[in-house]
Design a protein around this nucleic acid. Structure first.
Length: 855
RNA sequence: GUGGACGUGGCGAAACCGGUAGACGCAGCAGACUUAAAAUCUGCUUCCCAUUGGGAGUGCGGGUUCGAGUCCCGCCGUCCGCACCA
């Protein structure tokens, strides 16, 4: 008699059993081949959300499958525990960030355990604990000693709401990535990491990451932004007023960078960034220019501002000498579209072959000279569109007749020979500013001494621990305000000195946590020999939102550790998978003209087959598009309620089914219901099979074939992370077994089915395993291996097409020769009827597949 | 603007290398079991005409091919990244 699968009992039983057996503890000394499966560790914001469930379930399937396949699997979990939400909570609710964070961790750890993930909890870490961040401070000092850390005053992105500096990567459309406030520019002394030292290597390394999504590699490539060209000096003509007339500098001029040195004879102006030192110097004597610069700065950096912004310039009255012909003079403008922090902060304008320069030239009536032309168009004038295509150089003296590439090379060669310029590479990537004016982060282990300057904290004095007694009643950095914490004696001279009160960007914390998971000794950041056994991470899984930030920083940090001889690993993540978001439909009612609709949460709504009604009044609500879960649209789901009602296995099954993992998954009650039904169905099948007497003694060859095909297919699907396909095949296998008569093969099929679905629904699989009197736990059972002999059928279905259109199909022996197949086809009724007595002009036979008759 | 991805039933989706489009799931319809409901099971479910059967069909328009969801060219649409990068 079939019973219902009791998920609560099974979860408690097996989670305890795995824990007791330490089934998921990774053994550094294991002789088995090692593999490292990792999901991006969560920020402990409060509760696990559906995105975490999906992310960690995918990783779990991989980890459990690899384990069954004989690997020693490292599958750890930890907490990216520093960050601003903790401080926001402190400000809003008066709780300590540490208390708030640790309480969240406790809740979320509990939730993860309820999902039955195969995690090695003995390696758990939280970045907010001194035993982690103290080691990070040690690494920071190592990088400092190696010259990869430096301090400079620079214009930074200042978030006026969060009162902190943001990295370029954290500024989105001119706004702070977290607060959404318009970012201001301020000058502060900041700590930087020399990520640009590794620009070339980070770019080249992308080529080795075959198991990364093409999309992410492209995004990183664009972000690193390599441009090759010519850097050269424009001499300011003597007859111009010099920028700093008081000093009368020799050879005054400025450098520009161009990727198109071939178009140099098309130059009609030079332009400086508003923040360029020459612009600033000139502005001191020119109120008009000063006003223009102020105007440029006022223009926001927001997307809309840039798009709408007109190309504007201010004529400085200076002129520069053309490097290829001293007789040519070019006017110098200060222009709003020239960026100080890219290239040299100055450009030459070639209107004929650059749209932006063309717009500018038309506005200020500057000459437009074509210097590149497709065949026969040398004299075709440039209209409203700059010509950026290929062609041959014209109106360019010694360059005439060369193609663009040859022209570039020729100009660079000449510049280098004559000493006025050099071939250079310019990067879009900037150094990583890591200083944050916040409390809840890793303290930067530096002391500022009046006489010794910047002094590293001696390693023996690490960790520099955050003070507990801080207040958050006013914005800004509590470390700055702390009465005693920053007061310290200089380790070098012993005089009173001051601690650095900035903390590290939390992206530093996540740049090496995967190394610490692999090896976490108490007295140093990691043991290289142990860590190298596990690294690189074989399969890393997380959201695309980290395609640039986290993944680039972690790649850099790993290279930096390699560079200083601490770790012999270059790429931290050999395989990367970026999963889609979890979405949900929305429920709303319009609120009249000019008002945003009123949204309702799924809990307030009854979903019918075709529509939805509000529980409160029974009237219909509008069912909206399936979109990313967000608080404002009230379509957020808390997985906890589902774990309670349906159980971990149903939830796990659901998040794996339906959608391909890289695409968005629409969460729905109907979908969860379906998953729950599957769990029950497998349970029924197992119970019935276990108690039924074996009716037939013969083996069931047909079932065996179906079974082994499924084994092969699912193994391949999981390898490729195509969980939705694996699940479809499991449904088919269940159906097939249900219909099969009793036999020893059927029993084997059910136990194999259990092993195949164990990575996805582990509690159910364990519970059912017991029914069959199998030894030990299914978690320790080996992965099924397909018998190649059973993967091919004796017969095949051959399709018959006439002129490419399907007319009929029939079963035939596999590997039959063409003549036999052709004879069979031509003798079939439907074919005879369709041909109406004519002989086909041509017969195409695709062996074991189809026959196409061309009539 | 620029780089990229995608476009298949009512919905989520499958379809190896160009070879029977729509596997599997959801929703829906019909039936069985039941006093009834739930659960479960069986069948149907791309569209159009129809009795057998036939025709059309993978965003739109062309092309290559015996044969195109798949390859090529041109459009249209949706989504994502970057965004004055010289």
């Amino acid at each position: 008699m079939a019973t219902k699968f009791d998920h609560k009992r099974a979860e408690a039983r097996w989670q305890a059993a795995w824990d007791k057996a330490q089934s998921f503890a990774a053994d550094d000394a294991s002789p088995r081949p090692k593999t490292y499966v990792l999901e991006m560790f969560p920020y402990p914001s409060g509760r696990i959300h559906t995105g975490h469930v999906r992310n960690y379930t995918m990783g779990d399937v991989i980890a459990r499958t690899r384990r069954a396949q004989g690997y020693e699997v490292l599958h750890p979990m930890g907490w990216d525990a520093f960050g601003m939400p903790a401080e926001n909570a402190a400000m809003e609710r008066g709780v300590h960030p540490g208390g708030w964070t640790r309480a969240n961790i406790a809740i979320m750890r509990d939730q993860l355990k309820r999902l039955g993930f195969a995690l090695d909890w003995s390696r758990e870490l939280a970045t907010c604990e001194p035993d982690y961040y103290g080691q990070e401070q040690a690494l920071f000092l190592d990088l400092l000693a190696a010259g990869l850390v430096y301090r400079k005053e620079s214009a930074v992105n200042w978030d006026p709401v969060d009162m902190t500096v943001l990295a370029n990567e954290q500024v989105i459309d001119g706004r702070g990535w977290r607060s959404g406030a318009i970012v201001e520019r301020r000058r502060l002394s900041q700590w930087f990491l020399k990520i640009t030292d590794f620009a070339e290597d980070l770019l080249d390394g992308l080529g080795t990451l075959a198991d990364w999504p093409e999309k992410v590699r492209l995004m990183q490539e664009n972000w690193i932004g390599k441009s090759q060209g010519l850097r050269f000096t424009f001499e300011i003509a003597q007859d111009s007023p010099t920028p700093d007339s008081s000093r009368k500098r020799e050879g005054s001029g400025f450098d520009v960078f161009t990727t198109r040195p071939d178009t140099l004879f098309g130059a009609s102006f030079a332009a400086l960034a508003p923040d360029h030192p020459i612009s600033l110097a000139l502005a001191e004597a020119s109120p008009g220019l000063a006003a223009f610069i102020a105007e440029c700065r006022a223009g926001g950096t927001a997307t809309a501002d840039i798009e709408g912004q007109e190309k504007k310039g201010y004529d400085t009255g200076l002129s520069v000498i053309h490097p290829l012909d001293p007789a040519i003079r070019l006017p110098v403008f200060v222009a709003n579209f020239v960026l100080m922090d890219y290239g040299t902060g100055a450009i030459f304008g070639c209107p004929a072959h650059d749209q932006r320069d063309l717009d500018f030239a038309r506005k200020y009536q500057l000459p437009v000279t074509r210097v590149v032309a497709p065949e026969g168009e040398a004299e075709t004038p440039i209209a409203d569109e700059a010509y950026t295509g290929p062609g041959v150089l014209v109106h360019s003296r010694f360059l005439d007749g060369m193609d663009v590439e040859a022209g570039k090379a020729a100009v660079i060669t000449r510049a280098e020979a004559e000493g006025w310029g050099t071939g250079t590479t310019v990067w879009r990537l900037r150094d990583w500013g890591v200083s944050r004016q916040r409390y809840w982060g890793t303290p930067i282990p530096i002391i500022h001494c009046g006489s010794c300057g910047v002094v590293p904290v001696p390693k023996a004095q690490l960790p520099v621990v955050l003070p507990e007694d801080v207040s958050f009643d006013i914005p800004g950095n509590p470390l700055d305000r702390h009465p005693t914490w920053s007061r310290v004696d200089c380790p070098s001279c012993g005089q009173p000195a001051r601690r650095e009160t900035d903390t590290l960007d939390t992206f530093v914390d996540s740049s090496w946590y995967f190394v610490r998971f692999a090896s976490a000794p108490g007295d140093r950041p990691f043991d290289a020999a142990v860590a190298e056994q596990w690294l690189p991470v074989g399969q890393y899984i997380g959201g695309v939102e980290h395609a640039i930030l986290h993944l680039l920083y972690a790649r850099f940090w790993t290279r930096a550790l390699n560079h200083i001889g601490r770790l012999n690993v270059t790429e931290p993540f050999a395989g990367l998978f970026t999963q889609g978001m979890v979405t949900h439909e929305t429920y709303s009612r319009p609120q009249g003209e000019g008002h945003a609709p009123l949204y309702f949460s799924p809990a307030e709504v009854d979903r019918t087959g075709t529509g939805a009604t509000l529980k409160a009044d029974g009237a219909a609500v509008e069912v909206g598009r399936v979109i990313k879960m967000s608080k404002s649209k009230k379509n957020v789901i808390d997985p906890d309620a589902y774990l309670e009602t349906y159980g971990a296995d149903a939830v796990r099954w659901f998040v794996l089914s339906d959608s391909p993992p890289e695409r968005d998954l629409a969460w729905s009650d109907a979908g969860i219901d379906g998953a729950w039904r599957f769990v029950q169905r497998v349970w029924r099948l197992a119970e019935d099979s276990a108690e039924a007497a074996t009716g037939v003694l013969d083996t069931d060859a047909k079932l065996a074939r179906a079974l082994h095909k499924t084994i092969a297919a699912i193994t391949a699907d999981i390898d490729k992370l195509q969980f939705n396909k694996a699940i479809a095949r499991l449904y088919e296998l269940v159906s097939t077994i249900e219909r099969a008569p009793g036999s020893p093969t059927r029993i084997e099929a059910v136990t194999t089915l259990l092993r195949l679905c164990a990575p996805m629904v582990p509690h159910l699989a364990e519970e059912a395993w017991v029914l069959f009197g199998q030894p030990g736990m299914i978690v320790d059972a080996p992965w099924p291996v397909a018998d190649p002999a059973l993967l091919v059928d004796d017969t095949v279905t051959i399709a018959i097409q006439i002129n490419g259109k399907l007319k009929d199909s029939f079963e035939f022996a596999r590997g039959a020769d063409r003549a036999m197949v052709e004879a069979e086809v031509l003798g079939r009724d439907k074919v005879i009827r369709a041909l109406e007595g004519r002989a086909p002009k041509k017969v195409i036979v695709v062996p074991d597949r189809l026959v196409n008759l061309v009539a």
